[in-house]
Nucleic acid binder design. Structure first.
Lengths: 132, 132
DNA sequence: CTTGACGTTTACGTTAACGTAAAGCAAGAT
DNA sequence: ATCTTGCTTTACGTTAACGTAAACGTCAAG
């Protein structure tokens, strides 16, 4: 194992390439909740679960999801089993999310196709231009 | 054919489910450029190419790209062949874009996998709960 | 003991992508 | 002739996701 933690805010910022400000912001929105240590208990200490969550946050951000939505999504993952109703609700949420992601992937695939077309035209154009 | 246009701003807004404001905003950013008609030439008239561009804009937006970046992307599509240097630059841009899109798709696929896992756990949980 | 390095909170500033009036022109309907 | 509908511009307001500055605590090192 590389390191089992805990980690300071600086180490987190370094490892994940985000700013301190961003980490505090995510915490402010309830996406992270590192515990506190030191005198006055005002120094953040990040544990493994915080790192797991941060990975999910950043991936969600890369995909363009709003942070609030990211919050509800990753909360699905470490939710207590709860009642049956809750489980079924969770399943429906999962369905929604999958729908969204699949639509996005379709968009991406279409974009990639079009890029391939464009690239082909460029290469053809270059060829015609080299041997006229 | 359904309709060959031209279209008014209201029809555009209707067909693509965006607001007038958004259409004007995209135009302000140079993403659209409908021509003008009427007395004073102040009434927008949208043609087919505007619709093509708008589709691309909206898809880019769904994927979370900033509008400005969307502009440079869709400008790649109807660029004049230009010099060889331009063509090579365009090809490199295409490479960049493809890289970005492929990273995104990887993120999406990972998310979908995790959702599948979560769903499986939910279903198992439901089963255990029904026949204890 | 004071200087840095690192942490904290509070709070105003910034950018993107529009929303939302406000105020006005033009043309068909009543 | 006015009313409604649809279009226009101008301009201030809003939300998200932080940036950035101010002002302060704390601990190890010089």
């Amino acid at each position: 194992m590389t390191s089992q933690g805990p980690w300071t805010i600086a180490e987190m910022a370094d490892d994940f390439d985000v700013t301190h400000r961003a980490l505090r912001h995510y915490e402010h929105l309830g996406l992270l909740s590192p515990d506190r240590v030191g005198p006055g208990g005002n120094t953040r200490r990040y544990l493994r679960r915080d790192r797991t969550r941060l990975s999910l946050i950043l991936r969600g951000r890369r995909l363009g999801f709003p942070l609030e939505e990211i919050g509800t999504i990753i909360d699905m993952y470490d939710e207590q089993p709860g009642e049956i109703g809750q489980l079924q609700y969770l399943l429906s949420q999962i369905g929604d999310r999958r729908g969204d992601l699949e639509r996005r992937r379709a968009d991406i695939d279409k974009s990639l196709e079009e890029l391939a077309d464009l690239e082909q035209r460029c290469r053809d154009d270059l060829a015609t231009r080299s041997q006229p």
